[in-house]
Design a protein around this nucleic acid. Sequence first.
DNA 1: AAAGTATATTACTAATAAATCATATACTTT
DNA 2: AAAGTATATGATTTATTAGTAATATACTTT
Lengths: 102, 102
Amino acid sequence: MNSLEYSAEVLKAIAQPTRLRIIELLRDGEHCVCEIFPAIGHEQSNTSRHLQMMLKSGILNQRKDGLKIYYSLRHPEVLEMVRLAGLIAAHEAEQRAALFAR
Amino acid sequence: MNSLEYSAEVLKAIAQPTRLRIIELLRDGEHCVCEIFPAIGHEQSNTSRHLQMMLKSGILNQRKDGLKIYYSLRHPEVLEMVRLAGLIAAHEAEQRAALFAR
DNA sequence: AAAGTATATTACTAATAAATCATATACTTT
DNA sequence: AAAGTATATGATTTATTAGTAATATACTTT
């Protein structure tokens, strides 16, 4: 995997609504799968899959404590990327609203 | 489309190796499709598709000049996101190399 | 107006991704 | 050791995506 592909993997780990919800949830610190899946309203298996791929892409940390496995954000840069994406999204939404209102 | 989905669209427009190459190419200013597709080594139709989806997601500007259509980056934040993704990717690659070398 | 050029779009294929349900694994408690 | 709980993984389905080749559209030049 070259460096462009690697960067794309990292970005893909963020570029999905369910995973964005997970990231928002982890903003305030680590959470176990058992807390995450009810909070985002998806199956445990689906949630676990998303967490695995985020972990493998390198954006999450994993900590095992007994039965539970806690995940947390590994790089604060991820939150900054989410913020910037939100800025652009808001800007575009505004533009479209303005067009519509003319 | 809610705001999470919108943010995900913006991120998806960046999270793909071919599109990352296009973004790198546009770093130094606008380019037409006829310049972009040979530079990235893909078909004109494929390149045009990527540009369309990037345009619709809001990360590109389009300027028509006669036959040619010039695309440019609309938000400098995109370059910052690419930079942050590269940082994380490099960090993870380093970690893995270190593990491997032990 | 005809030919040429740049771009977008359609039709298609192959690959990837997201979700669910069922099952396996790993640890804990009784 | 048996039962219970938390998480991960396999199998499957459906949807989405990236790519190619061919065609349509729009503009320019002759």
